[in-house]
Amino acid sequence: MIVYTLKRLGLAALVAITVSIISFMLIRLSGDPAIALAGENATSEQIEFIRIQYGFDRPLVIQYLDWAHRALQADFGESPYFQQPVTRIIGDRIGVTLKLGVMSLIFAVAVSIPMGVLASIRPNTWIDRIALSISVMGQAMPSFWFGLIMIIVLGVWLRLLPISGTDSFAHYIMPTIALGYYGIPAFMRLTRSGMLEVLSSDHIRTARAKGLRWGKVLFKHALRNAIIPVVALAAVQLGFMLGGSIVIESVFALHGIGYLAWESIGRRDLPVVQAIVLLLSMIFVALTLLSDIINAFLDPRIRVK
């Protein structure tokens, strides 16, 4: 288990370094950063001044190492737009995004796993059909469109929920549903197909031959086995959700880092964009590592040799 964890940790570190190089390069490749920072009407002296001030004249490797070194200390420089440290700007907004992400994941899991289990124990019945329709709809509807529909119906017509902002828990309900719904189809399908496969497996027959009650067969033996691939998917899915939060935060005017990223791209606020890209990628790497470790706990074939 320790060896396994160390291996995964090493792998995660490698991925993190690669991702950091890519996010560093992305900004350099999208044009001369000094020109971008100086603005449209800058003279060539001004551009040259900025180039030296920000160190863009040094070799790329040195620039990267310097940048990475400071990034490790949570120093991403200053945002030219806000005239504030990037870390503070992001720190003010990350809470909203994390709240939205975690709530959406909980919502998606809480809906899709029970539904997937129900669909698997009653395949080809009305329950299964409903579950399938919900998942097909989830796949077919873009999340921003679903968000807008909710705003019109629940917010404008029925006036049940606030349509924008982050003041109360109620403000998070629609964004959570919109973003969570995005994850439901994949979770539900995987739960359903996993359960169907496990339920017809030999060891379930053994469990039944022991005289175990249906509940025990279903939850102790079947779900435990079926959930393993779902956990692996959860990390990937949460990554998608973090990406999706850029859209959802814009639709519901939630001031999280997704919304910030979208605005900063428009303002060419490079240090902020770069920091957000790096941060989201690191969260994703950490989640993958976490799901690997949870999976090892769930599956002794990984844990014990």
């Binding site: 030999d202 027959r205 469990a207 031959a209 435990r224 002794p300």
Partner: peptide
């Protein structure tokens, strides 16, 4: 009444001791 199955490799639950 107990039963022993044809497939010993897959008849035990891999997740439990």
């Amino acid at each position: 009444m107990a039963m022993i199955f044809q497939e010993p490799m897959t008849s035990l639950d891999p997740c439990y001791t």
